[in-house]
């Protein structure tokens, strides 16, 4: 009896078991929340509020980051391509890499850093200060009013944040191509090349990625918040864990989604 309790505590306390526990918690939370998805219209106010917090307030940082990523991409590739005499292919490189890879991953990272951390902190505080328990007592499922609106909002805003990031990145690439002296590529050639190589299905692929990443980031953040126990210190570590887990998940999933899409 003693030995079995020892092995049980070992299983529960080591890293591998905590990893599987996290996955399990996330899946359970997803399952419980999906049941409330048909009730989304009843939670419209909360959804709109989350859209505002997640989407609208993230736009400035998304715009700045994507502009410079597009610009640097054009700069780096332009330097090499100008030596090869093929600067017009900057359009194709920036166009495809922004819409298929850079924009979804970058937006998801920003979401994890800016929104995921805030969601975890909020829910962890509610959990630590027993607000979640109070909801349970009132027979209001936390999944219904805390998790579901956030997930729906994530699904709604991610395509839009993704397309904004993509187009601003393209603009950044175009400006660099036009004004940097060793590239000096006319904008219409840049756009023509971009359109020659980038098709709308590429944008769809990027949007699918962004949806998966956004949904996962918010789910991980909510789960991490709701499993927090203890006090303010645990809230902080939960936030850190939420962000790190989200980023690892994004990079890991990105590889497999890209592999599946090609």
């Amino acid at each position: 009896m003693n030995a079995s309790s020892k092995s049980e505590s070992f299983l529960l306390n080591n890293g591998i078991s905590r990893f599987f526990e996290d996955i399990g918690n996330n899946v359970i939370l997803l399952y419980q929340t999906l049941r409330y998805f048909p009730l989304a219209p009843t939670q419209l106010k909360r959804i709109v509020e989350q859209c505002y917090l997640m989407g609208l307030s993230t736009i400035p940082i998304v715009a700045i980051l994507s502009f410079f990523i597009g610009a640097v991409l054009a700069l780096q590739t332009g330097f090499v391509l100008s030596q090869l005499g093929a600067v017009e292919f900057i359009g194709a490189i920036v166009g495809l890499s922004m819409c298929r890879e850079m924009a979804p991953v970058m937006v998801a990272f920003l979401l994890a850093g800016r929104v995921g951390s805030a969601v975890t902190a909020e829910l962890a505080s509610m959990k630590v200060y027993s607000e979640v328990d109070a909801l349970k007592v009132m027979n209001v499922p936390a999944e219904k009013i805390l998790v579901m609106p956030r997930l729906v909002a994530a699904l709604l805003i991610m395509p839009i944040l993704n397309i904004i990031a993509t187009t601003i990145g393209w603009m950044g690439g175009m400006l660099v191509s036009k004004f940097i002296n060793f590239i000096q590529l006319a904008p219409h050639i840049y756009w023509r090349n971009l359109k020659d190589f980038t098709v709308f299905p590429d944008i769809i692929d990027g949007t699918i990625k962004a949806e998966v990443f956004g949904f996962a980031v918010v789910l991980i953040a909510c789960n991490q918040g709701l499993v927090t126990t203890g006090g303010p210190r645990e809230i902080g570590s939960s936030v850190t864990k939420s962000v790190v887990t989200s980023m690892v998940f994004i990079l890991l999933t990105d590889f497999f989604i890209t592999r599946a899409q090609l």
Binding site: I157, I163, V199, I203
Partner: peptide
């Protein structure tokens, strides 16, 4: 935000 986002998607779709 949503209107701008959706119109942007539409414009890009047309352009592509």
């Amino acid at each position: 935000f949503f209107i701008i986002g959706i119109s942007l998607l539409w414009v890009v779709q047309r352009q592509m």
